[in-house]
Design a protein around this nucleic acid. Structure first.
Lengths: 205, 205
DNA sequence: ACTTTTACATTCGTCAATGTATGGTTGGCG
DNA sequence: CGCCAACCATACATTGACGAATGTAAAAGT
């Protein structure tokens, strides 16, 4: 094969990762061979083995193109102007998280991680999900405790319980939407659910 | 091998299915061979291929030993004495669902379906999850509409929205618990969350 | 312009898993 | 009581995916 320029080579690398996303998503990780990925990108397995050591390495590279959403969500929350409005901070963080998830690459990779791959090589998707869950739940608890101190929560609702409730609701929404994203828009439905849940949390005037 | 009595043959069939549950759960469906399942049951692949046509057939048989929980949940709800207390009916249905899920066989099979298998043969776990989700969401909506007619819901909360909230919360809880059931008891945590959510739904006195 | 390295394509050996065919023992029915 | 088929083990054939080796032609360097 003729050698390509560096830019073209990088492009084929991206094309291989794109192809991996699509084929993994539609056939599952275990059932797709490197041959299928290569053919779907218009290449052969030789190209795959040039850019990646093996299937696990390619999988890692695919994951590294997106960062974890809840991690970013926590960073996003760090707006100092919202220090006295923690519930609003939570709402905005969820909103930006939803928008990020609607980008095709994010959606596909997370759908693969959660619904289309079992334990695979040194990657344990369930452990990653556990980390994400604990991380987001911790952040929610911090902000809801803050809200409780500011007297913005119903008195008959502990911030820990509210955090668990919100965490479970967000997780369920996340899973449902990733299962088939054409059923509803996560931005619309997510904002609606989060606003409603937070409204139920707030103390009545 | 010597021929076994009918009872013994049935016992080895069950032993093979038990072994399949355990190995599928710990190694994932795609990465486990029929050899591993047979050895784990103290048999050889010959026994597997006698009782089942192939891996997919064994998988089907494993699923058929448990019925879908939300399907039973819907049946469970049909208590006529609770016609004027739909929220209580929902709570009791969730409770019985949680207790059913704590039985090891139910827990293992659902954990496999949701977290440890990709698309596989003619089985599409995501389609099954979609059916379960729509089914339970429909039932919840019916009961919450009933509650709304009886004036038991906050006026600023539509029954459809409440159903979606509850559905997402239950789904998230379900997924979280199946991911590692040692983290918490789904009966305790689930009842706590459901009671709290329903309390937030109720109109204030 | 010449060499070297890059970026793939092609081919082939290997191995694990599946599926099938066969054998052997005995339970259970006539 | 005899024989057949149930029940399972064993051996063999087949498949297909991986990974390494090799080929090769052009881009980069000098």
């Amino acid at each position: 094969m003729a050698r390509k320029t560096k830019a073209e080579a990088a492009a084929t690398r991206e094309a291989l990762l794109d192809a991996a996303e699509e084929v993994f998503l539609e056939r599952g990780v275990a059932r797709t061979s490197l041959e299928q990925i290569a053919r779907h990108a218009g290449m052969t397995r030789g190209a795959v083995y040039w850019h990646f050591r093996n299937k696990a390495d390619l999988f890692h590279a695919m994951l590294n193109r997106v960062r974890m959403p809840f991690q970013e969500l926590v960073e996003e929350i760090g707006d100092p102007s919202l220090a006295d409005a923690p519930l609003e901070a939570i709402r905005l963080a969820c909103l930006s998280g939803f928008e990020r998830l609607e980008r095709p690459r994010y959606r596909r990779v997370h759908a693969i991680l959660i619904h289309h791959c079992e334990v695979f090589g040194d990657i344990d998707p369930l452990a990653m999900q556990n980390e994400m869950a604990e991380e987001s739940c911790g952040a929610l608890r911090d902000y809801l405790q803050c809200a409780a101190r500011l007297g913005q929560l119903r008195e008959d609702l502990s911030p820990e319980l509210a955090a668990n409730l919100l965490q479970s609701m967000l997780g369920g929404l996340f899973h449902d939407w990733l299962r088939n994203h054409e059923q509803f828009s996560i931005a619309e439905q997510g904002n609606l659910l989060v606003e409603t849940q937070l409204r139920l949390f707030r103390r009545q005037a």
